[in-house]
Design a binder for these strands. Structure first.
Lengths: 159, 159
DNA sequence: CTTTGTGCAAAGATTTTGCATTGCG
DNA sequence: CGCAATGCAAAATCTTTGCACAAAG
């Protein structure tokens, strides 16, 4: 939904990234550009190996080392927020995109994104109660999507 | 607060773990017992190396391999919920303990735990809207604790 | 041109695994 | 005793780093 708006945002993000890189006296290389684009389009959910291969397919030579180094720069510059690993799968969060949270199916890995203004408000309240200064958050609800849930109910009744 | 109640819970948890292990035809060894205890007492926030050393200090021989293997068993049995890594730091969540969420200071690593019934309720609503069947969730708010926040304000005004 | 970036391969770090031995039940 | 668990060391992963060469500005 709202594809157009999304594309504009991506373009703008890339520009911001370019500016930030240069401001720091660093260089804007094809590698950094394509890595950044990949991260945006995968919304931060990707695996290093895949990213390397995808970028190489676009005829931009890139090494794992460069991906790691670029990710670190992006972290420093604040373009990606945090790195977590869930079962060897690296997940980065893009800071500038509209915030959303995740429903994650532990069976098939499906990720459903959602956003709740109510939750955001409560969080702000909690933070101020604890004198905590939030930068970003991550809310993940793990469970079964409807499909997997139904399958598991079927299987359990057998055992 | 409520230390006593806490200790009872730990003991009960250990009993449950023992039962579950045996039910599966597995063996309840000193290693597994001490690993389980460690996880409970650190509330899932620990590093593998530290755990190995702590347990060895109690004169129970243990290897990293055993810790990893035990963690996998505990995951299968549902005693720990998920494994995430934040900057090379492994965090496990104990499923049975009272649920709580985290405020995590990205500067000093301090973790403040909190619980909000309001958030739980909203989550349930969201899940049912998406036909999602939650098993557990994780809410982490990253930011700066008051101390680090004040320090960063001071430093920024210099640059 | 100068300085930073890149790839490669080696080094580190973390986690898993095969195998001989130990020990719970 | 028998089967599972353990420790060790080797292997498999994942990530970082040193260095020589390439390329952005």
């Amino acid at each position: 939904m709202r594809k157009t708006r999304n594309r504009i945002t991506k373009k703008r993000l890339l520009e911001e990234f370019k500016r930030a890189i240069k401001n720091k006296g660093l260089k804007f290389t094809p590698q950094r550009e394509s890595i950044f684009k990949e991260i945006i389009s995968t919304r931060g959910h990707f695996e290093i190996e895949d990213m390397v291969h995808k970028i190489r397919k676009k005829n931009i030579p890139v090494s794992r080392a460069t991906v790691y180094r670029t990710l670190n720069i992006m972290k420093e510059l604040g373009f990606v927020e945090e790195v977590i690993k869930i079962n060897n799968k690296t997940i980065y969060e893009i800071s500038v995109k509209e915030h959303h949270d995740h429903l994650i199916c532990t069976s098939c890995g499906k990720i459903i994104e959602f956003h709740s203004e109510d939750i955001e408000e409560i969080q702000d309240k909690i933070c101020s109660e604890h004198k905590f200064h939030p930068k970003f958050h991550r809310l993940e609800i793990f469970g079964l999507c409807d499909k997997c849930y139904k399958r598991s109910v079927r299987n359990n009744s057998k055992s």
